[in-house]
Amino acid sequence: MKYEIVYFDLDNTLLDFSRSEKEALYNTFRDHGIFLTQEQITLYTQINKKWWLAFSQGKYDKEYIVFARFEEFLDNINVKSLDAKRIAQRYLETLSHLAYFLPGAEDLLEKLKKRKQRMAVLTNGVKTVQESRSKLLRLDRFFEFILTSEEVGKPKPDPTLFFKAQEISGVPLSRSVYIGDDPQTDSLAAKNAGVDFILFDYTGTGNDSQKTARTFEQLYSMLLM
């Protein structure tokens, strides 16, 4: 294999977070008698992305953004009867039980495992949620460890997550690669850490300014070369 260890982002790289997010959001509000429209769900995802970007920029801590996003969302849809912190907690609990591989992701991991490729996960996601979803999909079949930014105290694009991964794996970052779906946060994190980066752009919405794989088959080939 080209690299001694492959580090993956998790959400929307290997796992269909968009599906889990939509289902968790709809179910959470449904349980409170509110049936969200697709337009409202889209609004939430936009608000959520904004708050996670602020988190990655170090403007707010994770504990704050997980409920601040719901404060803004509830205000935007003019719902005054629900408490943002309670909704945020219920949403995370619901999300923790929803995990789906992107089509082809599990096959990719199986093929890499057969080639004895070392693999691990580096993610900015909420630790308790990622641990629960990882257990549902039995990701320990493939990965030596799953490391979250919470455990190192700084989110991507800060390189601390990568330095800790290097310490755990014992593999120099120069012999590693990071694969993620975010052309900004993931790419910059890899650059800051001095590790090779492959953008996984299965939606085809990115550009070709970075080394990019649009399918898992293409990604597999790139990891072999």
Rank of each mutant, 00 (worst) to 15 (best):
I5E: 07
F8S: 03
N12Y: 03
S20R: 01
N27C: 11
F29E: 01
I34D: 06
T37H: 05
Q46W: 07
N48L: 07
K50V: 08
W51C: 02
W52M: 00
L53E: 11
F55L: 09
G58N: 08
K59N: 09
I65Q: 07
F67Y: 15
A84F: 02
K85T: 11
A105I: 03
D107P: 02
L109T: 00
E110A: 10
K113Y: 11
K114R: 14
Q117K: 10
A120N: 04
N124A: 02
G125H: 06
V126E: 13
K135A: 13
K135V: 08
L136C: 01
L139V: 04
F145L: 02
I146N: 11
T148Y: 00
E151R: 03
E151G: 05
P155V: 01
P155Y: 00
K156T: 00
F163N: 05
E167C: 05
S169T: 04
S169Y: 00
L173A: 04
I179T: 03
D182P: 07
A190N: 06
K191V: 10
A193M: 02
D196P: 13
F197D: 08
I198D: 11
D201N: 11
D201I: 04
T203N: 15
G204A: 06
G206R: 06
D208C: 12
K211W: 06
T215V: 05
S221P: 15
L223E: 03
L223T: 05
L224M: 11
M225S: 14
